[in-house]
Design a protein around this nucleic acid. Structure first.
Lengths: 210, 210
DNA sequence: AAATGTGAAGTTGTTCACAGCT
DNA sequence: AGCTGTGAACAACTTCACATTT
C-alpha cells in the first residue's frame, strides 16, 4: 500500500469518504435533503468531529447551523474519488477466487466494468454464464491499451503474484487490487490495495480467544 | 472493527503477525533455520525495528547476534493467533460472493473449516460441486451449537446485514468477517472485520487520478 | 562483530474546545 | 440557537539511537 498524488491527506480519510458516500446515498433514497455531521457520522460509525475534519481536507461544504446538503456532498465525494465516470478494469487469475469475483455484482454497481479476465490456463474455467470475456495472457497488452485500462484486480496464486504485478505495471496499470498472498513490490507511482481473506480470518481468530 | 481481550497491543501488530507467519513458512520451505529481523522484515515489507517492536509485545524470542529461529517463531505466532487448531466457521449468504468464498481454497489452507453455509433462499444455489453443506437459516442454531462455532462469514446483501449479524451474536458468535456493505452494530465482546470490495476499488480510483 | 530489545523522540491520526457563520 | 470549521491537545503508532547480549 502506497500513497502519493495528494500526500497530505490520510489514507483512512479517503477510505471513510467511501463510507460517507454510501450513507448519503441511503439518506437520499429516504428523501432526506440535508443532514448534520452528527447524524451522518452516526450512520457511518464515526465521531462527528472526525467527519468534519475529514471533509475540511477538501474544502467547506456545510452550512453552519444547518448541516450538509445530501446531494451536493454526495456529488463532491464522487468527483473527488473519481467514480463519476465508468472505470474499466482487468482481472488476472480466473481460479476459484477470481471466478467468484467475476460473478460478484458489487463492482459494476459502483461504476467499475471488468472489460476482460485473463489466465495463464484458460481451458477449465469456461463457465458459460460469465458475462466477462476471457482472454489468454498474451492478449493483455492489447485489451489494456484498447480500453485505456488503468486498474487491475489480481487473484492469482502466490507464486505468480509478483510476476503478474510486474507485467501489469509495465503495461501502464497504476492501481492494483491485490488478492494474491504476497507482499508486492511496485514503482512509486503505482498504488496497491492488498486484501488477504485468510489473514482477515486469522486476525479474528486472535480476538475471539478467551 | 473493535478490539478487546489484550487491548494494549495495536491491532496493526496482530495483522502484521499474520504476514510474518506467511514469510516464515516460506523461509522454512527454503530450508532456512534462522533469520534476522532485517531479512524477515524485508520479506514482510516493514522496517526491522517495527518487526522487533511487534514481537516484544509478546516476549523475547530472538538471540542477540544471531536472529530468530524460524520454527520456534512460527510456532509462537501460530499459538498466539490461535490458529494451531482447526477452527469451525459458518457462512451466511450464498449469493454470488458467498458462493465464490465457498469455492475459495484459501481458508482451509490456514486452518479454517466452513462447517455449513446458510441462506434464506436455498433453491438456486445447489451447485453440485460445492463441498460445504448448505442449510436453511432455520438450522443455524443447531449447527452452531453442534460444532461449537465461534466465527462467521457474512456475505448477505446490505438490507439483511444487520439482522443476520444480530442473529449470529445472539447465537454466541464472537468473531465476524463481514462482507455486507453495512456499518454493523455489535455488542462489545464481539469482533467484526469488515471487508468491502467495492470500497477497495473506489479507494484505488482516488489514487490513480492524475 | 552482529543483531536483539527498548526507552525516547518523532510522526501520524483523532478528539476536544470553542470561535465563527447563518 | 444550532451546527460547522479548525487550531490545539491528545492518543496511537512508528522510527531512532543505543545499551545489551551472544
Amino acid at each position: 500500500m502506497k500513497k502519493h498524488g495528494r500526500p497530505e491527506i490520510p489514507r483512512k480519510t479517503i477510505y471513510r469518504l467511501s463510507i460517507y458516500l454510501r450513507c448519503l446515498q441511503r439518506l437520499r433514497q429516504n428523501g432526506l435533503e440535508t443532514v448534520s455531521s452528527e447524524a451522518l457520522a452516526r450512520a457511518a460509525g464515526v465521531k462527528p468531529t472526525q467527519l468534519r475534519k475529514d471533509l475540511t481536507y477538501f474544502g467547506q461544504f456545510g452550512t453552519r447551523g444547518l448541516g450538509y446538503e445530501v446531494d451536493q456532498l454526495a456529488k463532491m465525494i464522487t468527483d473527488l474519488l473519481g467514480t463519476n465516470h465508468l472505470q474499466p478494469v482487468v482481472l488476472i487469475g480466473v481460479g476459484s477466487l477470481g471466478t467468484a469475483l467475476l460473478r460478484y455484482r458489487g463492482f459494476e454497481q459502483e461504476g467499475f466494468e471488468i472489460v476482460g479476465a485473463f489466465d495463464a490456463e484458460l481451458r477449465r474455467h469456461r463457465d458459460a454464464d460469465l458475462k466477462v470475456p476471457l482472454f489468454p495472457m498474451e492478449r493483455l497488452a492489447e485489451i489494456i491499451s484498447k480500453h485505456r485500462v488503468k486498474m487491475a484486480i489480481v487473484s492469482v496464486p502466490a507464486a505468480a503474484g509478483q510476476a503478474v504485478i510486474n507485467e501489469l505495471t509495465a503495461l501502464g496499470i497504476v492501481g492494483i487490487l491485490n488478492f494474491a498472498p504476497v507482499v508486492p513490490v511496485v514503482p512509486d507511482h503505482v498504488t496497491v490495495n492488498n486484501v488477504n481473506l485468510a489473514i482477515e480470518l486469522e486476525n479474528l481468530s486472535y480476538f475471539i480467544q478467551e
